[in-house]
Write a protein that binds this DNA or RNA. Structure first.
Lengths: 221, 221
DNA sequence: TGATCCATGTCAGCGATTTGTCAGGTCGGT
DNA sequence: ACCGACCTGACAAATCGCTGACATGGATCA
């Protein structure tokens, strides 16, 4: 993925660019506001890392002009000044996230991944198994195109089973991943939950493997 | 698509026109500022490729007069002089992109495609979802064309939800992006805020996904 | 200065949904 | 036929989100 890094301090720019390249991004760098604005307005980037303290045009102004021109790429703001008010300014200008300096490189990478994923937007992440679909963006499942309302716990169960479809998932594993804990088992809450989901999605969706756990088959007949 | 190429050097004009025609455009050529101005003002072109070094009227002056007359076709500026300052001048005059000579023909084509594409979606900077509109430039919201007055916080909420429409946004994410913090939650301020926005924009605009968060549905076509 | 307005947070109570528990019932394998 | 694993329906408790009323605090204006 192609990134634009806007940073006037050459040392920092080199460090960050190096880390981003090591993480597999293609990085272009702008050193002042004018250049940043021009590149961001004319080229297509998967994301922008934008330092606020710039010579030339202020970073926030650059961002605002991009947004005013309809540029929608995700933007991660970097700034030395960490005030709450400024963060809100950044968000108003259309930033997607905000990272105060100094920061650890892993955090930059994590936040970048997060905003890119969130922004990946219209490329909906949909998991399909047989005639049931899981739309992770809308947190909704549908059966043969009919959307079904699931409660949060039900959704987590379906989501986990669907992402591990074609494999038997033990009750213990489900306990860990659907509820937070892994223990205290004198409850049949999970079985009840499975029952409720079956009532909504139809009984064939989740198979019982007596003594082993549950499974959503890869492609039901 | 019909293009206007403004270039006084016959050799370059022929080269560029040839490449553009090979790429499937219909090309008309102007050789001086007066002719360019007249054609651009009276005919309809999908885009203009405009050389700045012209006899007669200067290219920038031509562009400014077009814009002053309300001509909005995308314009790509060509110039031998490559300073950032001049780029910015051109952009202030209303150019959509800028290409310094010498250039590779593929780059010209790429930039042309880019400005044409961007110009096609020029309703942008306005986000539309269903019958509500968000004008990010003016920070205003309207429903079915009727402008609505929102308080700063209400605007931030709507703006964030609209920029991420079609996706469920958790209360925590909203807390972070509407207020500055992600902490201290024994408050229902966000729910109250949502309620107030609904009272102004109508109850269907923001969907509640109990246990998940809120969502503004994608505009149905 | 005081009166007033507006934006925003807090609180309490409601109604609906969600979820755990329990008490049988069913099913499958030995 | 038996046993344990699993299912089902019913109920109660907990949780969630909405609403109206009120409190606070800053800005504005007479």
């Amino acid at each position: 993925m192609r990134l634009l890094l806007v940073e006037d301090d050459r040392r920092i720019a080199a460090d960050v660019a190096g880390a981003l390249q090591a993480a597999g991004y293609v990085v272009e760098t702008a050193r002042d506001g004018e250049e940043a604005w021009f590149l961001g307005d004319t080229e297509d980037y998967g994301a922008v890392v934008l330092d606020l303290g710039l010579p030339g045009m202020d970073g926030l102004a650059v961002l605002k002009r991009w947004r005013a021109n309809g540029r929608t790429m995700p933007v991660l703001i970097l700034t030395a000044r960490g005030s709450w008010a400024e963060r809100v300014d950044g968000i108003d200008a259309g930033a997607d996230d905000y990272l105060p300096k100094p920061f650890r490189m892993e955090e930059l990478l994590a936040r970048l991944r997060a905003i890119v994923r969130r922004n990946a937007g219209h490329a909906s992440s949909v998991v399909v198994a047989g005639d049931i679909e899981l739309d992770e963006r809308q947190m909704r499942v549908s059966v043969r195109g009919v959307p079904i309302t699931l409660s949060p716990l039900e959704y987590r169960l379906v989501s986990y089973l669907l992402r591990h479809r074609g494999r038997v998932v033990s009750q213990h594993e489900l306990d860990e991943n659907v509820y937070g804990h892994g223990e205290d088992h004198d409850s049949n809450a999970l079985e009840v939950l499975v029952g409720r989901v079956r009532k909504k999605l139809g009984p064939e969706v989740i198979e019982t493997r007596r003594g082993f756990g549950y499974m959503v088959p890869e492609a039901p007949p």
